[in-house]
C-alpha cells in the first residue's frame, strides 16, 4: 500500500493542487483570488503532463549527447531509454505561454471591472448590478 502511494506520488500531488485551484475558483469572492486559483489549476495540469513524460533508470534531459550525434552521422540509432519523453514537454511549452496570455486578458478585464464598479468582490458587484436594475 505504501509503495503504491509513493510510486504515484506526482499524480496524487496533481490531484491535490487541482482541487486547491478549483476550491479557490468556486468559493473565493475576490476576482484576483479566482484568477490565482485558475493559475494553480493550469500549473497542476502541466505537472501532470511532465510527470507522464518522466523516465527513471538513467534517463537524462532530451538533448542529444555529442556521442549520440556522432553515432547519428554514422546512422546508428540512439537508445530511447537514455532520454526523457520529449513530446509532453513540447505540448506544455505551448500551454504555459498560452496560459500567461489568458491571464493577461483576464487581468485587463479585472481592471475594467474595477474601473466601473470600484470593487473586486463578487457579492458587492452583484448587489450594485441589482440596484442599478441590470
Amino acid at each position: 500500500m505504501f509503495e503504491y502511494i509513493v510510486s504515484k506520488f506526482n499524480y496524487w500531488a496533481y490531484i491535490c493542487l487541482m482541487m486547491i485551484g478549483l476550491y479557490a475558483m468556486i468559493v473565493k469572492g475576490n476576482l484576483v483570488k479566482k484568477l490565482i486559483g485558475m493559475n494553480i489549476f493550469q500549473v497542476s495540469i502541466i505537472l501532470f503532463y511532465v510527470s507522464v513524460g518522466a523516465k527513471s533508470g538513467g534517463a537524462t534531459v532530451p538533448i542529444l549527447t555529442a556521442e549520440d550525434i556522432h553515432h547519428a552521422h554514422a546512422h546508428v540509432l540512439a537508445n530511447p531509454l537514455q532520454y526523457m519523453n520529449p513530446l509532453p514537454h513540447v505540448l506544455m511549452l505551448t500551454a504555459i505561454v498560452v496560459g500567461i496570455a489568458t491571464t493577461g486578458v483576464a487581468l485587463a478585464i479585472i481592471i475594467m471591472i474595477y474601473n466601473r464598479y470600484k470593487t473586486l468582490e463578487e457579492d458587492e458587484i452583484l448587489v450594485i448590478r441589482k440596484e442599478s436594475g441590470v
Partner: peptide, 8 residues
C-alpha cells in the same frame, strides 16, 4: 527541472 524537462 528535477524531472528532466529543462525547456519547460
Amino acid at each position: 527541472a528535477q524531472m528532466g524537462a529543462v525547456d519547460v
